[in-house]
């Protein structure tokens, strides 16, 4: 039994959730938000999408194996640790530049790493569970 209205709403909702998550991620340094929250919100969007369409559709939607997403998240975070080292500072020191009045720095990069990892982790977990436990029908 397909419910077209639900499917429409959910597909739309996915974009809204991910968009909102990205918004929270970049705003997180000054206002409520941040990598963890944004990651969970985006993942919740995917979870909802998965419940309605099945886990295969989620994997199709994101195109990449969630484990790779997880790994790249970790790598991005590590990069934030390594950049200061290349500049001769202790690892994980914040390095800041200013671009058109907006401060950009490695902590932001680190936050993005956290976000990517959290999304990858939750998506990986629930797609695996749905797949193995046959929740896709």
């Amino acid at each position: 039994m397909r419910n077209i209205v639900l499917e429409r709403i959910v597909s739309l909702f996915l974009y809204v959730m991910v968009g909102f998550a990205l918004f929270l991620l970049f705003r997180g340094h000054n206002r409520p938000g941040g990598g963890f929250i944004a990651g969970i919100i985006a993942a919740a969007g995917f979870l909802l999408y998965g419940i309605v369409f099945g886990s295969e559709k989620v994997l199709e939607k994101i195109r990449v194996n969630p484990r790779y997403i997880m790994g790249s998240g970790l790598l991005i975070a590590l990069l934030a640790a390594l950049i200061p080292m290349m500049l001769g500072k202790p690892p994980l020191t914040g390095v800041w530049t200013s671009l058109a009045g907006i401060a950009l720095g490695t902590p932001l990069l680190f936050d993005i790493g956290v976000f990517v990892l959290v999304v990858g982790m939750i998506v990986s977990i629930f797609t695996n569970i749905m797949d193995v436990l046959k929740w896709n029908s």
């Binding site: 963890f36 990651g39 969970i40 959290v118 939750i122 977990i125 629930f126 569970i129």
Partner: peptide, 8 residues
């Protein structure tokens, strides 16, 4: 968040 991972 870790609790979430551990729970899973």
């Amino acid at each position: 968040v870790i609790g979430l991972g551990i729970a899973a």
